[in-house]
Write a protein that binds this DNA or RNA. Structure first.
Lengths: 358, 358
DNA sequence: GTCACATGATCAAGCGTTTTAGCAAACTTT
DNA sequence: AAAGTTTGCTAAAACGCTTGATCATGTGAC
């Protein structure tokens, strides 16, 4: 009899466990009815408010009903009444182009999660219109705030609609006062990169900088100078080359580099270093014996697997994402004057060896 | 006077444009009051329902009010009443580890967007518990469905909670009947890779396969066989090596490879090819003259910038994400029996040259 | 036996929308 | 001028949940 009812159209209320997929979601009210209590009671149990006085017996009945029906709260309804959403928006200009954006997302997500927030992401590929729509969407979902991130460290301007919400710039910055931002500490990174070489005894160190203007270009050079000067080595303009910051650039710089009579070279990024490896090899030179090399960025696929593995400095993308979220939520105080600078750790591998005493 | 009011605590109602940040969001009702109409009217105007009869004059008043107050609809409230949310969930096991996941996200996002959906992403780093929470979160947000993706093509099992919603497996698959899935077409990819070599006249072609079991391992080998057989070249077991699928593996395989007397080699992936480049170079051999090489994966940072740039086969991550969304929304029909296979395009660069006639 | 006070649970309003049914006024028809 | 039709708009319920106010009991103190 009962089984007849089951096999006919209407599923019995007693065995809803397996039919869940796609069915209308179970609501609080249904749970309340099943448990024979009011919706208020169910709500109190679900969120186990300690202020509420609910007997253990009732509590159990409710829990059982929830279990039986497979109830899931409706987050939309919750945020509607509570007034504040549990979303953080992340707009990125190039999720796809690089592994870096992934790290920012990852860091942001972990940190957001930790504070009970979900990440709403949008990837604009630099398209202004897409960007506007993405931000609009986030605003309509009443996000707690928006992280606006770029895949390489640069100045940016703040889209108007961004101002309708709390926001933090990640891996970019704006002149605009009051625009909170978090960026990598390029100067420290440049210093660290150079220090790897210095501490191995190298004194005459070339720097292959990028040709294209960027905070990284200035910062990494500045760090190089600082590190040298701290060691009492005068800065020599002649040891600074410039090339397009990719493999071809690094490769192309080889000739000039070899005329400099240096024992070590610090490259603007890992890709240049990769090109330089090829160039050096063509000259029959060995790394690190004939030339010590350090890169920048710690682009895993490259740096870790070059022969020999490349010593380099990490761009702290994960940390940028995480710090962005913290700043957004007001957990990290924004430093006065300028963006927060995140430390770039060094990663030492085998492309640098102690210089044999002359 | 007016300015006095402004500079004191209460912002004047006349100039709310600039004070927006953080303020309580403007609601439909406020717009209605400002425009002197009912909320119903405003709603009708906002969504410009064509069925509604609203005078142009009223319409304008409403639009002006919206403009003045900076009104944004509350998406939560909308989905609450409409019953269906505009979210698609994407859970990934490794957003950060590889650039690949980024492409899946990118493709999914573009496609979702196209159909008016926003992407809710969660990155689990393979942690089962995190994964459960992530899925729970998505279910609570009443997502339209969930994309469950892995960073490399593999079998997976379907987490229980996933079944509470529509879902599509992306870049992975499950034995389970009824689990829709979309994966790269490894066999076709393997065939294409081999064909690059064949069409340049190579007949004796080695394949360095991976040691670790995976659909890619079987599929890419299968494709290799098929391509050879289509050309009437008998498959020779001796030409298939195995190595760990990274740079070191490729490098290590050089010795054995050179004993095979082949003119071309197809590597399981680009990273092996990168290692092989190093190995070949140590033997003073040149690519593509002494040995033609093709890879697989089209890992940009590597393939495009090796010297010479590597011919390879693309893993269609972007397409996987997009196709996943389409399948979820029921726009692409799932093929009966097994996952949808996505085409892997070839990318020809300079690591293959026509074989000089013997 | 009355009063105060815990205890356990419910009522009902409200969050910001959408949408159907319906009302009043202004036009047409006859 | 009565009836019908259009036009322009609004009332109010509903979506699923939270929460402060309220109520009905039972318990102990006097």
């Amino acid at each position: 009899m009962d089984s007849q009812e089951n096999s006919s159209g209407t599923p019995s209320a007693a065995a809803p466990l397996q039919q869940s997929r796609r069915a209308q979601p179970v609501t609080l009210r249904q749970v309340a009815e099943a448990a024979g209590v009011s919706t208020a009671t169910v709500s109190l149990v679900v969120n186990n408010k300690k202020a509420a006085r609910i007997s253990d017996e009732t509590r159990k009945r409710v829990h059982d009903a929830i279990q039986d029906l497979g109830y899931r709260p409706n987050a939309m309804a919750q945020t509607l009444v509570s007034g504040s959403s549990r979303f953080i928006g992340l707009v990125a200009d190039a999720i796809a182009t690089t592994p870096f954006a992934g790290q920012i997302i990852h860091g942001a997500q972990d940190e957001a999660w930790k504070h009970g927030y979900a990440l709403l992401i949008a990837n604009t590929e630099g398209n202004r219109e897409l960007e506007r729509d993405a931000i609009a969407m986030m605003l309509e979902y009443k996000v707690r705030g928006i992280l606006y991130s770029t895949w390489f460290h640069r100045a940016t301007d703040v889209p108007d609609s961004l101002r309708e919400s709390d926001f933090v710039l990640v891996n970019c910055f704006a002149e605009e006062p009051g625009a909170r931002a978090v960026v990598p500490d390029e100067v420290q990174g440049g210093r660290s990169a150079t220090e790897i070489l210095l501490k191995h005894g190298h004194r005459r160190i070339a720097f292959i900088n990028a040709t294209i203007p960027a905070p990284a270009k200035d910062g990494r050079l500045q760090g190089y100078r600082e590190a040298l000067e701290a060691e009492g080595i005068p800065f020599d303009d002649g040891l600074v080359l410039e090339a397009y910051p990719d493999q071809e650039g690094g490769f192309g710089a080889t000739e000039v580099l070899l005329k400099l009579g240096v024992t070590a070279v610090y490259c603007y990024n890992d890709r240049m270093a990769m090109g330089l490896y090829d160039g050096l090899r063509e000259h029959g030179l060995s790394i690190p014996d004939d030339m010590a090399v350090v890169g920048f960025d710690n682009q895993e696929v490259i740096a870790a697997h070059l022969r020999p593995p490349l010593s380099t400095v990490s761009l702290p993308h994960y940390e940028l994402g995480a710090a962005g979220v913290r700043m957004l939520l007001g957990l990290d105080e924004a430093q006065d004057g300028g963006p927060d600078k995140i430390y770039c750790p060094t990663v030492e591998r085998d492309s640098v060896r102690a210089l044999a005493p002359a």
